[in-house]
Design a binder for these strands. Structure first.
Ligand SMILES: [Mn+2]
Ligand SMILES: [Mn+2]
Ligand SMILES: [Zn+2]
Ligand SMILES: [Zn+2]
Lengths: 145, 145
DNA sequence: ATGCAAATGCAAACTATTTGCATTTAGAAT
DNA sequence: ATTCTAAATGCAAATAGTTTGCATTTGCAT
C-alpha cells in the first residue's frame, strides 16, 4: 500500500470510492495548504500520475466540495481555486499587492447576522467576508515609490 | 432631444462620449435599481433600440465599471451582475435559490477592521461582505418539497 | 471470482465574456 | 456647416474555464 492509498478509509467513510486520482489529489491538497486552481492541481498531480486527466480533477474537486472536504472560491474574472475545507470558521485578509493571505479566526458577524435575519425574514446560512489592504512590507514599498 | 440624450453632460463629465447605447443603458440601470446580468440588460435595451449588440452592452458596462458608474459582482458559477455604483457603503444579502439580492445599509465591520489593522500591521482599504441564505418564499418552497 | 454502479480518459460541447475588424459616430477643429 | 479623427459599435469569431457524453476501466459489495 503506497501513500496514495492512505485515504481509502477516509474516502469510504465519506461515501466515495478510493481511486488513485482521489487519493493523490487529497495528498496534494494536504501538502499544499493554500488555495490552488484545478489546473495547477492537475499539473502537480501529473508529476506523479502522468495519465490523470483534467476533467477528472474537476470531477474530483466537485465531489470533494460537495462532501465539504474542499472549498471552492472564486474572485471576479478569475479561475476558481480549491483548498481543504477549513476546520474552523475563518476569514481572509488579502494584500492587494503581493496577494499574501492572512487567515482571521475571529468572526465579528454573529450578532449582525441574527439582526439581519430578523429584519429581512431571510434564513441566513452562510457569509463571505474578506478584508483587502496592504501588508507591512508592501506599504513600505508603495510609500518608497 | 429625447430622454436617451439626457445623460450627455454626465457622460462627458466622466470623459465618455454620449452614445445612444450608453444613454439607454444608463436609463435602464437607473430605472431598474437592482443588479442585472449583461444579457438581461441587453434584452431590455433591445426593446428600445433593436439594433443594440450584446458586445456593446458588455463594453459599455466595462467602461461604466471602470469609471465607477456601475459595479460588477459575480457569484460562484454564475453570470456577473451589474448595478449602479452604490452611493453609500453597503453589503448584500443573497438568496441562494432565486438569486434575489437585498441591500444592507448597515456595516458592522468598522471596529473589527481597526482591530485587525492593529493586530496584523495591514493597512486595510476595503472589504467584501455578503450574506447568503434563503428568502421567505424560497424557504417555503424548499420546506414543501 | 463476479457483477455492476461509479469513476475515468478523451474529445467535444458549453457559455459567459472578450476580441478583431470593418464601419459608423461623437465631438473637436477648421 | 464641414471636415477630421479617435473612439464606439455591430457582427462574427475566438477565448477559456468548466462541464458533459460516451466508451472503457475500476472499486468494492456480494
Ligand atoms: Mn464569519
Ligand atoms: Mn462594510
Ligand atoms: Zn503585500
Ligand atoms: Zn429566494
Amino acid at each position: 500500500m503506497n501513500e496514495c492509498d492512505s485515504y481509502k478509509q477516509y474516502l469510504n467513510q465519506h461515501g466515495m470510492k478510493s481511486t488513485k486520482q482521489r487519493n493523490l489529489l487529497l495528498l496534494i491538497l494536504k501538502k499544499i495548504q493554500e488555495p490552488q486552481t484545478a489546473e495547477k492541481l492537475y499539473l502537480i498531480a501529473k508529476e506523479t500520475d502522468s495519465s490523470i486527466n483534467l476533467s477528472t480533477v474537476y470531477r474530483v474537486l466537485e465531489k470533494f466540495t460537495e462532501k465539504k472536504i474542499t472549498i471552492r472560491t472564486s474572485f471576479l474574472d478569475d479561475k476558481s481555486v480549491y483548498s481543504l475545507y477549513p476546520k474552523t470558521h475563518q476569514h481572509q485578509l488579502i494584500c492587494l499587492r503581493c496577494k499574501k493571505i492572512v487567515l482571521l479566526e475571529n468572526c465579528p458577524l454573529e450578532a449582525f447576522q441574527h439582526s439581519v435575519e430578523k429584519s429581512t425574514d431571510f434564513s441566513i446560512v452562510n457569509h463571505r467576508l474578506e478584508l483587502y489592504g496592504y501588508c507591512r512590507q508592501c506599504q513600505k514599498i508603495i510609500a518608497a515609490n
